[in-house]
Computed example of a mutant assay.
Amino acid sequence: MGFHTFDSDQAAKLEDAAARYRHCSREELHALVAPQSDAVLADLGSGTGFYTDDLAPHAGTVFAVDVQTVMHDHYREKGVPENVELVAADAADLPFATGELDAAVSTFTFHEFGNADALQEVARVLRPGGRLAIVDWDREGAGEAGPPRGETYGLDDAVGLQRAAGFAIDRAETRPETFVTVARLDG
């Protein structure tokens, strides 16, 4: 897909807790990612760090990965936790060693980077058994929030991309506006 990136001029919207938690709460995010105190995680498409901040207190290192450096500027303005490292990179070209990450998460950004190359790269940087948790706008969703549905994936397409990259799917479900997947790297 990769139809667009989020308009950085609208970055303040990414800090609207009521709107964000309506579609994925802090508690749900923790259940999906299952962070451990020594875990190394990457938040793919981290934006202003809204969800990164929810994971940081429960992990060893969190990489806030965003292709737009201006999003990191917004994150710096509000304050970046000590164990969070800002990384400017495309998901198809991550600057991590093979097997470096315990988990990766994408909250409402998979439609911006999800393709075969990016999923192969995420698989490369995850350790065997590592988790990939995705919450994104569903192409079949009601369309009341998020990007135009033509710029999103349906659950089956997202699952197909993950399986093709070597992931086993532990959870895959749709909701009124979104889908959720939790995948584990085979090996």
Rank of each mutant, 00 (worst) to 15 (best):
V40A: 10
L41W: 03
D43K: 05
L44H: 07
L44V: 14
G49W: 02
A59S: 12
G60E: 07
D66Y: 06
V67L: 15
Q68W: 09
M71C: 03
M71K: 14
R76K: 11
K78I: 06
G79E: 07
E85K: 11
E85N: 08
L86P: 10
A88C: 14
A89R: 14
A91V: 13
D93S: 15
D93P: 01
L94E: 00
P95M: 02
F96P: 00
D102A: 11
D102F: 03
A104V: 10
A104N: 01
F110Y: 07
E112P: 11
N115W: 11
D117F: 06
A118M: 00
L119F: 12
E121H: 04
V122N: 04
R124P: 09
R124D: 06
V125N: 00
R127W: 06
L132V: 01
I134M: 11
D136W: 06
D138T: 01
E140I: 12
G143I: 11
G143Q: 03
A145T: 08
G146S: 06
G146P: 13
Y153N: 08
G154Q: 09
L155H: 04
L155N: 00
D157N: 13
L161K: 01
R163E: 15
R163M: 05
A165I: 05
G166K: 02
F167T: 08
